[in-house]
Design a protein around this nucleic acid. Structure first.
Lengths: 190, 190
DNA sequence: CGTGTCATGTAATCAGTTACATGATTCA
DNA sequence: TGAATCATGTAACTGATTACATGACACG
């Protein structure tokens, strides 16, 4: 009874690029996939062991001087087959959870400036996210990636750019609308 | 040891609009919050009982002819206080999981037209999501909502519009880039 | 001398979905 | 007659994070 979690395929996908340790994967996901995916050690390591017993990858431990051992994983042919099979399956819609929108929807319970402040804070964070994302571009262009891999990487970055720009634009619109609402209520106080 | 899940506040927020049954909440969330939140009965009903024992809401069962009993919940003052307290806390960034972008990133394992097809399929779904979202606008304008509630509702819809339009725009860009890539490889076959 | 990085892993917990049970009524 | 809607609820499960343990070394 093996459940086919997406973590399995994230791992196999990463190994289809190059051999890696669990630690490497975590670093990579936290950087390159930050705007659309995440993995924790708590899922990564057990899943790696599981994939090895299934024969989808093999691993070897490398001893290092002054550093902990490194277990480097390599994808097998069987692993590649299972990966491409998954890649051909239709993708689902992105799953989104936004407590900001939840809070905004219930904004009638709180002074309007409080909602404005929420959005303003979020806008700031989104701005830094966007900048971080854009800072990867040169590295991707120069880094020793194959032509295809470069293209796919840039496409995911582009997705983050467009979506985050849309979010920021929404913040600006929302702040404007809410601010008008505040000042129009100042003109006619109770 | 009570964990303060967001489901708690989603429930309290809904009850701050009007008294509701668990079933009502599910309907409402599936409609109005679809693009940024979800709740299942499996979490809704137990959390409702929990909130009642904590005194944040009270409930009454209404018998109906030919239909199951309805348990209607009303928020208490204590509930309102806890809700507004949460509303003032800074919101986090939206959590996103997109297996489409994951698959695209690993696209080098699969023929490029397969990736194009993935994006084309997703584009179609996004288009219907967007249309559904926009179809709510008139109902929100006419529906018997207070001025504030109407504004907050429209703001969340607007968010869905902008973000989904950005996603669709990205699909178009990505399809174009990948298609060019395919035809340029046709010109110089191996 | 304390903090951070490298590195793997487990246990506990939290978060969230799915499947099932019940049962009357409405609609095609 | 069979499916869909209304309505509540539980049990089982999957999915995912957090906290902790270990330990050498580098950096300020």
């Amino acid at each position: 009874m093996k459940s086919k979690t997406t973590t399995r395929y994230a791992i196999l996908g990463l190994l289809s690029i190059q051999p890696m340790s669990g630690y490497d994967m975590k670093q990579f996901v936290d950087m390159a996939f930050k705007h659309f995916w995440s993995e924790s050690y708590g899922r990564l390591y057990p899943t790696l062991r599981q994939l090895e017993t299934e024969g989808l990858l093999k691993s070897r431990v490398y001893r290092q001087r002054g550093r902990p051992d490194r277990r480097v994983h390599t994808i097998t042919d069987k692993g590649r087959r299972e990966l491409t099979e998954w890649l051909e399956q239709p993708a689902s819609l992105p799953r989104v959870r936004s407590d900001l929108l939840l809070k905004l929807f219930f904004g009638h319970n709180v002074p309007v400036p409080s909602s404005i402040e929420q959005i303003r804070r979020q806008r700031e964070v989104l701005e830094t996210v966007l900048k971080t994302l854009q800072s990867y571009r040169p590295a991707v262009d120069e880094g020793g990636l194959s032509g295809d891999q470069r293209m796919f990487f840039l496409l995911t970055i582009r997705n983050g750019e467009l979506v985050n720009k849309a979010r920021i634009k929404w913040c600006d619109e929302a702040i404007k609308i809410l601010s008008k609402h505040v000042s129009s209520n100042e003109e006619t106080p109770s």
